[in-house]
Amino acid sequence: MDWNRVEGNWKQMKGKVKEQWGRLTDDDLDVINGRRDQLEGKIQERYGLAKDQVNKDIDDWYSAQRW
Score class of each variant (00 low, 15 high):
Y47T: 08
G15L: 01
G48P: 07
K16V: 09
D26Y: 05
K56I: 10
G22F: 02
S63G: 12
D37E: 12
E45H: 04
D60H: 09
Q53A: 13
K11D: 09
G41C: 03
V6T: 07
D60R: 12
R35Q: 10
G8L: 07
R66K: 15
M1P: 10
R5Q: 11
G22Y: 02
Y47R: 11
L39K: 05
W67S: 10
G34V: 12
L29M: 07
G22S: 13
L29V: 07
G48R: 09
M13T: 08
D37Q: 09
E40C: 03
K51I: 11
Q20R: 15
W61F: 14
V31R: 11
K11L: 06
I32S: 01
N9F: 03
N9V: 01
L49Y: 15
E19N: 13
R5D: 05
A64H: 06
Q12L: 07
L29F: 08
M13W: 03
Q65K: 08
N33W: 04
W10D: 01
K14G: 02
D57Q: 15
N9G: 00
E40Y: 04
V17M: 01
R23V: 01
N55R: 15
V17H: 05
Q20P: 03
D57M: 14
G48S: 12
M13Q: 04
R46Y: 04
V6I: 15
E45N: 09
R36Y: 03
N4W: 04
E19S: 12
Q38C: 03
G48V: 14
D59F: 09
V54K: 08
I43H: 02
M13E: 11
D2S: 13
G34C: 07
E19L: 09
I58P: 00
G34T: 11
E40G: 01
Q53W: 05
L24W: 08
D37S: 10
I43S: 00
D52Y: 10
E40S: 06
D60A: 15
G8R: 13
Y62L: 14
D26H: 11
G41W: 04
I43P: 00
S63M: 04
K18Y: 05
Q12R: 12
L24H: 10
Q38D: 07
L39Y: 02
I32E: 00
K18A: 12
N9L: 04
E45Q: 13
R46S: 05
N4G: 11
T25Q: 07
W67E: 09
L49I: 10
R66Q: 13
D30M: 04
S63W: 01
E40H: 02
Y47F: 14
D28T: 06
